Amino acid sequence: MTAFDALDLRLAPGDGPVAFGGTLGAEELLAAYRRGLFPLPAADLYASAYNEAVYGGDVEAGRVALLPGGPDPYALAWWSPDPRPVIAPDGVRLGGRLARRLRNRLGWRTSADRAFGQVLAACAEGRQPVWLTEELAAALVRLHELGVAHSGEVWEGEELVGGVFGVAVGPVLSLDSMFHRRPDAARVAVADLGARFGAAGGRLLDAQWDGPHVRSLGAVPMARSRYLGELSGGAVAGALDGTLLPAARLG
């Protein structure tokens, strides 16, 4: 049993946090992803106080759960948006212009799970508010060591120019964050990681937060109830092929 097992997401808000509190160890983090939740740690005491000011009434009324553990429950929020933006592993849109550039001019290469720590650090670099805390990063690194968290990398020579990382649960890969140091490199990273995940038996990429950017990647909204069914249904995706490959094959 975990603290998340008692949550009834059928009644949980779809446009706000569904719970506060708990801890961010690797086991707890994986349990959350298996239940269709992901964490959003507060960047500082001000952000924690803001969470309490905005959502404290919902917690007291029982509309948002309060999980045991942690000295400051409002320092850690758990989200499960409804609907959820999802993409088929082979459905990431590159667009005609980028596809032509990959085929004709760019010498990028791609890999998976070769530079997880570097991708994590690059995704955290300069981001405000700071959500990828040291505690969360440590839990994600542990999940990567266990073969659950994955990264996709785009290389220009020996330089890492783009990447994405996420957590796999059954046939679903939940994408947490991406970065780019060259235009469109993050998009290529998502397309490549999606292709590798699909080849390993994966069925769905979860983009977590809806918006114009993920819609441009090919995301479509899926009701949370159906998304939760996808998490628990079907075969578990296998290990990803991390071979260094030319990005031109995606074009």
Rank of each mutant, 00 (worst) to 15 (best):
Gly107Leu: 09
Ala138Ser: 12
Val154Asp: 10
Phe165Tyr: 13
Pro129Val: 13
Ala138Ile: 05
Pro83Lys: 00
Leu136Ile: 08
Ser177Glu: 15
Arg93Leu: 12
Asp82Glu: 07
Arg127Ile: 11
Glu145Val: 15
Arg142Asp: 15
Glu135Val: 04
Ala122Met: 09
Thr110Asp: 08
Val161Asp: 00
Ala99Phe: 09
Ala99Asp: 08
Val92Cys: 12
Pro89Ser: 02
Glu159Met: 07
Glu135Tyr: 02
Gly107Trp: 01
Glu134Phe: 13
Val169Asn: 14
Arg114Gln: 14
Ala121Trp: 12
Gln118His: 08
Val141Pro: 01
Gln128Thr: 15
Ser174His: 11
Gly147Ala: 12
Arg114Leu: 13
Gly126Ile: 00
Trp155Gly: 01
Ala88His: 03
Gln128Cys: 09
Gly126Pro: 09
Leu98Trp: 09
Ala137Phe: 06
Glu125Ala: 14
Thr110Val: 15
Pro85Asp: 08
Leu94Phe: 07
Leu173Asp: 02
Glu158Gly: 14
Gly91Pro: 03
Arg127Phe: 11
Leu140Lys: 01
Glu153Leu: 13
Glu156His: 09
Ala137Glu: 08
Arg103Cys: 12
Leu173His: 11
Arg105Asn: 01
Val141Gln: 11
Gly91Cys: 03
Pro83Asn: 02
Val86Asn: 07
Trp131Ser: 03
Val92Leu: 00
Gly163Lys: 04
Gly147Leu: 13
Arg103Pro: 04
Leu136Phe: 14
Ile87Asn: 14
Val86Glu: 02
Val154Trp: 11
Arg109Ser: 06
Pro85Gln: 10
Gln128Asp: 14
Asp82Val: 09
Asn104Ala: 09
Thr110Cys: 15
Val161His: 00
Ala115Trp: 05
Arg142Glu: 15
Glu125Ile: 00
Gly157Cys: 08
Asp82Met: 07
Val167Ile: 15
Pro85Val: 03
Arg127Ser: 09
Leu120Val: 03
Ser177Gly: 09
Val172Gln: 11
Ser174Met: 07
His144Leu: 10
Glu159Asp: 08
Glu134Val: 05
Ala137Met: 13
Gln128Ser: 13
Gly162Asn: 08
Ala121Met: 01
Gly157Asp: 06
Leu160Phe: 01
Gly95Glu: 06
Leu160Tyr: 01
Gln118Ala: 11
Arg100Thr: 06
Ser177Ile: 05
Ala88Lys: 00
Arg101Ile: 05
Arg142Tyr: 04
Thr133Lys: 06
Thr110Leu: 14
Asp176Gln: 14
Ala138Thr: 11
Glu135Thr: 09
Ala137Tyr: 06
Glu125Gly: 09
Phe179Trp: 03
Arg97Cys: 00
Val86Gln: 04
Leu120Gln: 01
Leu160Asn: 05
Gly162Gln: 05
Pro81Trp: 06
Pro171Val: 05
Glu145Leu: 15
Val86His: 07
Asp82Ala: 10
Val154Lys: 04
Val167Thr: 03
Trp108Ser: 05
Asp82Cys: 04
Pro89Val: 10
Glu158His: 10
Pro81Ile: 06
Ala122Ile: 01
Glu135Gln: 09
Cys123Lys: 02
